[in-house]
Amino acid sequence: MSNVPWWASESFWRKTAIWVTAGMTLVLIALTFDTVKVITAGHSRVPAYEVINKRIYYRMNTKRKFQEPVIGEDAPLFGKMLSPEEAEAMVSHGKMTVQAKNCGSCHTLLGNGAYYAPDLTKAWLDPAWAGESVRETLMVQFLLDPTTNARGFGSTRRMPNLHLTEEEARAVVAFLKWTSAIDTTGFPRNFTPVAQEGDL
C-alpha cells in the first residue's frame, strides 16, 4: 500500500473533498447574497407590490431577444389605488391563499408545481380572460365557482371548488397580477399575451 502515489492517496482525496465542498459552498453563498438582493420585491427583477396599481404590459425586448414585463400607467386593481402597505398585504393574502388551497399541486407557478392545470405565472396576461377591462371580474367569478365557470377549452378537466371567500379570490387575483410582472428571463418562451388595448 506504500506505493500509492500521493494524488491517489486517501488523505489527499479527503482534503480535496473538503476543499471542493467548502469552495463551492462559498461561491453559492456569495451568489446567494447577490441574488437575494436582486429578487427582493421592488428591486430590478421582482416588482414592488404596489405594481398592482399599474398597468402591466408584456413586450419584446429586442436587445435581450425575449419578452419582458413593462410597468405602465395607473390601472388600479378593482378600481382602488392601494398604499404600498395595503398592496403588500393584499398580495401576501393572495400568496397565502395559493399555498393554503394547494394550487401548486395542479398548476405550476414560474414553471414549478404540477402539470395538471395551466401555468399561473402569466395568468393575468393570458388571453383566456377575454379582454383587459373584464378580466379581474371574470377571474374572481371563476375562482368563486370554478365548476360552473370552467375554462377547459374543450377539455373536461375542471378546477374543483376550493371555497374561496370573495376577499381571498380578489387577493389571489392581486397576487397573480403581481406575479405577471416578475422578469422571468423570457419564460414561458413565445408567450402570446392578451390583446393589450391601446398598446403600440
Binding site: K63, R64, K65, F66, T185, R189, N190
Partner: peptide
C-alpha cells in the same frame, strides 16, 4: 446583459414552430 453577451438568449433561432 451579463454572461449571455450580445447573443441574448438565442434559442433555436426564430421563436415559434
Amino acid at each position: 446583459m451579463g454572461a449571455l453577451g450580445h447573443e441574448g438568449l438565442n434559442i433555436v433561432g426564430p421563436m415559434g414552430p
